[in-house]
Design a binder for these strands. Structure first.
Lengths: 130, 130
DNA sequence: CGATTTGTCAACCACTAGGTTGAATAAGTA
DNA sequence: TACTTATTCAACCTAGTGGTTGACAAATCG
């Protein structure tokens, strides 16, 4: 249970985790159309309001949505910021993966060479070099 | 347990779920630099090789990586396609959220009006209208 | 005030996730 | 053939998730 990279910078895990659930993605999709109250969000989701409330809590904890009081109701609002965070992470590695994909053969050859650094080669490190 | 939207189109959940784990994100980050074998990937992660193998299985199931045999080793390769899938989903709603954010005040006013449709108002629907 | 609406909190339950260790498989090496 | 390396499979454990129901809190309505 001892993480080597502490939760310090791990603002990302809760966001991905939040969106890993289809119900929550639907909530996000719905909220993209406009703010809504909890019960409004719950309505189309044949599942208890409490369950939706929990889902919203997860979304809120991840920073994807915020809630503001509106009398007894809570107005739920979709936030854009965290999307950016996620997009940045994804794009970074997607670009790498795509770049590598495009010149795949060439790169694979290259990797092979790096892989066998001549000499005795007690253990070969593949691609780790960056 | 009865989903209203079956797992049919839910290719997305496994991807988000896969990236919800920091260890797996590190694996992806590492793989962006180049293919690697399981044990190479395991090395920096003070955790058993079996654990990493499990993580890779999750990544593989999500479509983020593929494995090819290379003698006894398995060469793990990062795939770009699924990134696209995710990016598309995110961008779609991020854009909405941002657009709404930019004209926030105006929209909030608008919502308020929709919210009180005059008349008796047995139940008011907020933002559901798109 | 009392009743209703809206949402959360709390306890509970089945299932999954992420880690462990130990054994099994598969391929290269002596 | 036997040994080592690389990886997976299987069983297990703990903690977390996603749902339930029931009770509570806060604001509005009568």
């Amino acid at each position: 249970m001892d993480r080597q990279q502490p939760a310090q910078t791990d603002q990302l895990s809760p966001v991905f985790a939040a969106l890993a659930d289809p119900t929550r993605r639907e909530l996000v999709a719905r909220l993209a159309l406009g703010d809504a109250t909890v019960s409004e969000l719950a309505e189309p989701h044949d599942m208890s309001v409490q369950a939706i409330s929990k889902h919203l809590k997860v979304l809120e904890a991840s920073g994807l949505v915020t809630k503001t009081r509106d009398a007894q109701r809570r107005r739920v609002h979709l936030e854009a910021e965290v999307f950016d965070l996620m997009t940045k992470w994804i794009e970074r590695y997607r670009r790498e993966a795509e770049r590598r994909y495009q010149r795949l053969d060439a790169l694979l050859e290259e990797m092979q060479q790096i892989e066998q650094p001549a000499a005795d080669s007690g253990r070969q490190r593949t691609g780790g070099a960056a």
